[in-house]
Computed example of a mutant assay.
Amino acid sequence: MSNMQKGLAEFIGTFWLVFGGCGSAVLAAAFPDVGIGLLGVSLAFGLTVVTMAYAIGHISGCHLNPAVTVGLWAGGRFAARDIPLYVVAQVLGAIVAAFLLWHVAEGNPAFDLATKGLAANGYDAGSPGGFDRTSALIIEILLTAFFLWIIMGSTDGRAPAGFAPLAIGLGLTLIHLISIPVTNTSVNPARSTGPALVVGGLALQQLWLFWVAPLIGGALGGWLYRTIGADSFPKPNIEGN
């Protein structure tokens, strides 16, 4: 696949993750008459990954997340030279999805961006459950590391073939069930960036944590699997890795 194809696939896939995942929180969970709750939003995020993994996994690998891209590099499965292409495509997809989601939500007179937000991530006053910055850092690093472990393990050459998208999607669902009350769940800097740019204010001020923590966690998870998991996945010929 060409770089253009890979970049467009990552753009489309990340758009789908943000529009589908954040959209479930903004359009379905926020209104009592059609509320889907914590379980519904968590499942929606997982489903976006499952569906896109089958749709674009063979094109770009379906990273949809700068932390995944960096984690796969740390795990020896991705070339460092391709990181900028993937990250830019992912962030742009997330931004476009967030702005379109905002415009859709505004079609309901009951929607108010200042009070309802756009499923932005945060800590302290920005946390759904009032959790502090330390809790946010710990949960985002830890869960992103485990997310990379799941990705690396389920796509290992020794794992059952064809089931990786399900394991990864269900893993992301579980991650959301754990951490929505803490940070509204990021584990993905692109997913955090789109809504933060739309909402602004506190969400934008706290965005740094949702880049730093997932990138650390992703790199840690990828490195740990490469080290401990004795990865048998066929290694690409990557110069400088």
Rank of each mutant, 00 (worst) to 15 (best):
A145W: 05
R226K: 13
E106C: 14
L177W: 06
A94I: 01
T227D: 12
W223P: 11
Q205N: 15
A44W: 09
H103K: 14
I175R: 06
L47G: 15
P214T: 00
F11G: 09
T183E: 05
P128S: 08
M52H: 07
I150E: 09
S2H: 08
E140Q: 09
Y54E: 08
G13S: 09
E239D: 15
A28L: 15
I12F: 13
G126D: 04
S60N: 04
W223Y: 14
D112M: 13
V70R: 00
P165W: 02
A53C: 03
P195V: 02
G126C: 00
A120I: 00
L197V: 06
F147I: 09
N188C: 02
T48K: 07
G169R: 03
G76M: 05
E239N: 14
A136P: 05
T193V: 07
A80P: 08
A110I: 14
L174Q: 10
V87E: 03
H63R: 04
G129C: 11
I228K: 14
H63T: 10
D82C: 03
I59E: 03
P84A: 01
L177K: 07
P109E: 01
I178Y: 12
Y54K: 07
I168Y: 05
G162Y: 00
P84W: 04
A110Y: 13
L209P: 13
A28E: 15
W16I: 15
L172Q: 10
I138K: 05
G46N: 11
I151M: 01
V187G: 08
I178V: 14
G76R: 03
L8V: 15
L137Y: 11
L101Y: 01
D112I: 13
A79V: 02
I238W: 06
T183H: 01
G200V: 00
G217R: 04
A190H: 10
L47K: 14
G23H: 01
R191I: 07
W149R: 06
L101W: 07
W208A: 06
V88K: 08
L142Y: 11
L224I: 13
A79H: 06
S60V: 07
T69W: 02
L38E: 09
K116A: 15
D112P: 14
A9L: 03
A74K: 01
G71E: 09
A119Y: 06
F19M: 05
G130T: 03
H103M: 13
L215T: 11
G13F: 02
L43F: 14
Q205T: 13
V18E: 00
P128T: 03
S192H: 04
F15W: 03
V187Y: 07
A55E: 12
L27K: 00
L72R: 01
G107D: 08
G217M: 02
V87M: 08
L8C: 14
G107V: 00
G122H: 01
I175H: 02
G201Y: 04
T227F: 14
R226E: 13
G57A: 02
L142R: 10
A119P: 11
G221D: 12
A44G: 09
G71Y: 06
A44I: 10
A67T: 05
A119W: 08
N188Y: 03
R133T: 12
A97G: 06
F45K: 02
P236D: 01
N237Y: 15
A89R: 02
L47Q: 15
A97H: 04
I12P: 14
R77G: 12
F19S: 05
N188D: 01
F210M: 05
S60F: 03
I36L: 04
